[in-house]
């Protein structure tokens, strides 16, 4: 009987099993239990949700191992945790803590402005953010087993999430068209995307990324989640949108339901009723460029 851990199939496979689901940011074991009860497919354990990182400022780092372990023991669903971009020792620590997925995240302060983590070197799988197809393919080349469009975390403004998922999907469609009409132009397409030719060709042939594509950054309502699903996301990360709202348990369950029934407006309408206050929110246009998290990573 042969047994191989950390293979591409099992890393990408866990992301497959999360499809159609909602992954929720939680900062305490109590919040993690509320998320599980509401139907989260996984939780993201962190010390501060993006809205607080944004308002409090300073350097944002990996969470305290005690907090992460407390959340792991509180729930039965997968637990993810964030490492800073390029901070492979934070990632080593998270793997030693036996988290189920690592998010190499622009929401934390980058540790390396040149290199991302070599994710092939790990047994635990990674999810990474991307604003466009080239960025997604570079992260996959480094070993990411799941991609999430970045959006603008901590704002409650869905417009950047919409922009990024639309960009990725339309760039994939353009590659597909090139493959059909002028396959010899895929070489220059690879150059322009700054991604390996073989991977570009695979996307052009299949019309999709070779890993699962989730969305993130600014989701605050059930309709936001359904919008991004209709635009082609395979699942949703919700950060500040749940536990910065008036009735987190009810809103969390409503977002889960709308994500599962994302084409059914009657269900989305029903589940949008009486949720109390949404998170206050900041318009992305009012966030000065140096404070935009999506511009971290390259």
């Amino acid at each position: 009987m042969t047994t191989q851990t950390g293979t591409r199939a099992v890393k990408r496979g866990l992301a497959d099993m999360l499809k159609g689901g909602v992954i929720m940011d939680v900062v305490t074991p109590e919040q993690a239990r509320i998320a599980e009860d509401a139907g989260a497919v996984a939780v993201m354990a962190l010390e501060r949700v993006p809205a607080d990182i944004r308002s409090q400022g300073g350097v944002a780092r990996m969470s305290d191992p005690d907090l992460i372990e407390g959340i792991i023991s509180a729930v039965s669903i997968p637990v993810m945790a964030k490492a800073r971009i390029g901070h492979f020792v934070e990632a080593q620590v998270l793997q030693a803590l036996r988290v189920d997925y690592i998010d190499e995240s622009e929401v934390l302060s980058p540790a390396d402005y040149v290199n991302h983590i070599d994710k092939h070197a790990f047994t635990v799988p990674f999810v990474c953010g991307a604003t466009n197809l080239g960025e997604a393919l570079r992260r996959i080349t480094e070993g990411a087993a799941m991609i999430r469009s970045k959006g603008e975390a901590g704002t409650g403004d869905v417009s950047e999430a919409v922009k990024h998922i639309r960009t990725i999907r339309s760039e994939i469609a353009a590659l597909q068209a090139t493959f059909t009409a002028n396959p010899d132009q895929l070489y220059v397409a690879a150059k322009e995307l700054a991604a390996p030719y073989e991977l570009v060709r695979e996307v052009a042939e299949t019309g999709k990324l070779p890993v699962v594509l989730f969305t993130a950054g600014g989701v605050a309502t059930p309709a936001d989640a359904a919008l991004l699903m209709q635009l082609g996301a395979e699942g949703v990360f919700v950060g500040s949108g749940i536990f910065k709202s008036g009735d987190p348990a009810k809103r969390a369950a409503a977002i889960v339901k709308a994500t599962a029934a994302y084409t059914d407006a009657a269900v989305i309408a029903e589940t949008s009723r009486g949720l109390g206050e949404a998170m206050v929110g900041i318009n992305v246009a009012d966030v000065p460029a140096p404070h935009r998290l999506a511009e971290r990573g390259w």
Binding site: M1, T3, T5, V10, L14, D100, V124
Partner: peptide, 14 residues
């Protein structure tokens, strides 16, 4: 549920 450990224990098996 989840009888073989966390994701780092997930494996391809013959």
């Amino acid at each position: 549920r989840n009888a073989f450990g966390s994701q780092v224990d997930s494996a391809e098996v013959g």
